[in-house]
Simulated scan of single mutants.
Amino acid sequence: VFYFLGSLASVNGFQIFMFAESWITHELNESPEALGFLGLSTALPTILLNLFGGALADRLNKKLLITLCQFLTLIGVGIFAVMYQADFMQYWHVYIFAALGGAIGAFELPARMSYYPLLITKEAMPSAVAMNSLTWQGTRVIAPAIAGLLIAVFGATPTLFVCCVGFLLMIVFVNMTRVDIPSNNNGGNPLQDIINGLKFIYNNKLFLTLIGYSFFLGFFGWIYMVMMPYMAVQVLNVSSSGTGVLLTAAGCGAVIPTVVFAKSGIKNRRMGISIGSFFAGFAIIGFAFSSYQFQSFSLAMFFVFIIGLSSSIYMLSAISSIQLNVPNEFRGRIMGIYTITYSIVSLGGLYSGLVGGYIDRLLGIEHIGVPISIGFGGFVVVLGSIFLYLYNKSLKVEA
């Protein structure tokens, strides 16, 4: 209970910070490429260090690792807030802080993802996955709306300090958990741990499929989240509060499956993986097309809601399949590699921003490129989900 309370506070802080960070970047530089490079700044350190983070999560005290990472995040966001308030912030400063945050996350996320399963029995795993997902998805309902409202009413600086409160609460609550998992540091080479983890994934087709397809879905499908400030302001002509409402709509959709399957989990996970990504792809196409063609805020909200709902079904199915099948001694490394998915989303944002800007210049039409890049990503996801369902044997047998 203490862990999930702390996680709820921390993830709220993280979601609010991500919104504020994107908003400040767009405020300082309105080009679509700016948000793309923000994604790159976050993603590169995470991808480069995530394997080491997963290896450390398997070797060290996970509670201590989570506490240290949360403390560093709190300090970093505090400095970010002071610099912004002093009017010292340039958009490239945001990239530096994003890179530092990505580096910290590379060590924290594997520790988190491998810590909470050790506090429960295997039979409770589907429910625990749903609860953990509810923490992330539920905050997507509240956090963007709170962030947009706080920025609109009080400005970005108080919003950033609210984030710090969430990180502080996580430090307090995680250290109130009564089960302390001992470290597994038996010497040896951490690099060899990483190699062993990669070999394990390669030799187990279920993990190779789920992690690989999650990377694919993150890069092509979930880029709409990175580009939402651009889509909201430049295409739909709404303010920060409107941007928050759109992201909240995605969160509302995502919460529904986590509540429905909180007790039992998704039984047919192969179907959940395929159908979830299939409908997410269609909704992404609808969001991109309708936003540019009709500039309808309510229609955009509807499609974003469906994206959130469908993506949540996919994530519940995929993460449950991984957590139920991975051995404890590999859990940190495997979940660490899986969490690279969230960084792949940021790289997808870079693709969308660069391609979108190029299409604008090529066609001589403003603000058409990003919707095209997002819609194309949705189309690719639809094709990928069909192929996955029809031709992948590992999901039929093991998921």
Rank of each mutant, 00 (worst) to 15 (best):
V259R: 07
A147D: 12
L65C: 05
F80Y: 06
S343C: 09
S274I: 06
P182M: 14
G281F: 04
P257G: 06
V326E: 03
P257R: 10
G221K: 01
I307L: 10
N392E: 12
V304M: 11
K122L: 00
N328D: 04
T258M: 03
R331Q: 11
S214Y: 06
I307F: 11
H93S: 02
T25M: 07
V11C: 14
F219D: 05
P144S: 07
D58M: 02
L40G: 03
L309F: 15
I372T: 00
F303C: 14
M315D: 13
T209R: 15
L119K: 02
F279K: 09
M315G: 12
V141G: 10
S298V: 14
V129L: 00
G364Y: 07
G253M: 10
A254F: 00
F261W: 00
F4D: 01
V82Q: 03
F2I: 09
N132D: 10
S41K: 08
M18E: 11
F387C: 05
Y91C: 03
F167Y: 08
E30P: 14
M89A: 03
V226W: 11
Q70V: 09
S240H: 09
T339V: 12
G212M: 09
Y389T: 06
Q234H: 15
S241Q: 12
T42L: 13
Y389H: 12
S346K: 08
I285S: 13
E366A: 14
V233K: 13
L68R: 15
M89K: 02
E108M: 14
L217E: 14
S320E: 06
L395N: 01
L28S: 06
N237A: 12
L28G: 05
I120S: 06
A300H: 04
N392R: 08
F97S: 00
F220G: 00
S312Q: 00
F71I: 01
V370R: 01
G332Y: 01
